[in-house]
Amino acid sequence: MSGTAAMTPAAFALERVSKRYASFVALDEVSLSFASGSTTALIGTSGAGKSTVLRLLLGLDWPDQGVVKVGGQILQHADVLSLRRRVGYVIQDGGLFPHLTVLGNLALLPRYLGWRAPQIHARAAELAELTHLSPDLLERYPAELSGGQRQRVALMRGLMMNPDALLLDEPLGALDPLVRHELQDELKRIFAQLGKTVIVVTHDLAEAAWFADRLVLLRGGKVIQDGDLEDFRRRPADAFVTRFLHAQRHLPESSA
């Protein structure tokens, strides 16, 4: 795969994309590309435009200027449904449908695409194993699950159709630190195991560096820095990057 990386088109790319919501500039002439099979973390403060990148890649929003490319092709309205079926999308609170059980949530798209019940059950069991979700939770409703369990289910739903890519928007943002820590481990393992194109949005630098080699820092709708953690440390693009790096709090040294 890696040998042909230069030849194959990027899984996703933004070319000089601008997007504004009313007077708020979410993205300002941003160009970014995401290689197939790579894991990238988008970081930045809230309102920096991170989530907008994911929304544009899924056709949930459309750029005011510039183009979005998927697999080298300019994204058209007509392609959106098939694109979304090849991409798993996980948001902060999971976005699970409260009126459906876990299995109902997982089955929504496959059933529409004509999968039979045994096939759906088998895939759900497989993903439960992958995400370490207890299989007897499959019949529960979202309201009967813990926050961590809900995120595991959201990830399972995103993976149901075995997509080419996973887009995660603050997937662990609403969890308490212990669960978050545990899920960070699991997500990293799953990303490595599946080898898919992954783009994860987070405002937590440590989490970003844990998941991905490539970090993209956004601020005010612009890419400030794009590189690995070492680049950020050694060659910060500006004072903001340095401040962002130092804003991570460490536990105080033990006084004993």
């Binding site: 899924l58 949930l60 959106v80 449904l81 098939s82 694109l83 979304r84 079926r85 999308y89 948001i91 609170d93 976005g95 699970l96 449908f97 409260p98 009126h99 459906l100 929504l108 798209l109 529409y112 739903r157």
Partner: peptide
Amino acid sequence: LELRESAAALGLPENVRLRRVELPMAT
């Protein structure tokens, strides 16, 4: 909004979203 968008992001067409997600939630 995030639930309506989650349904959209799954790649379900609008009429299926209406029937399977939105109408049941509005029951």
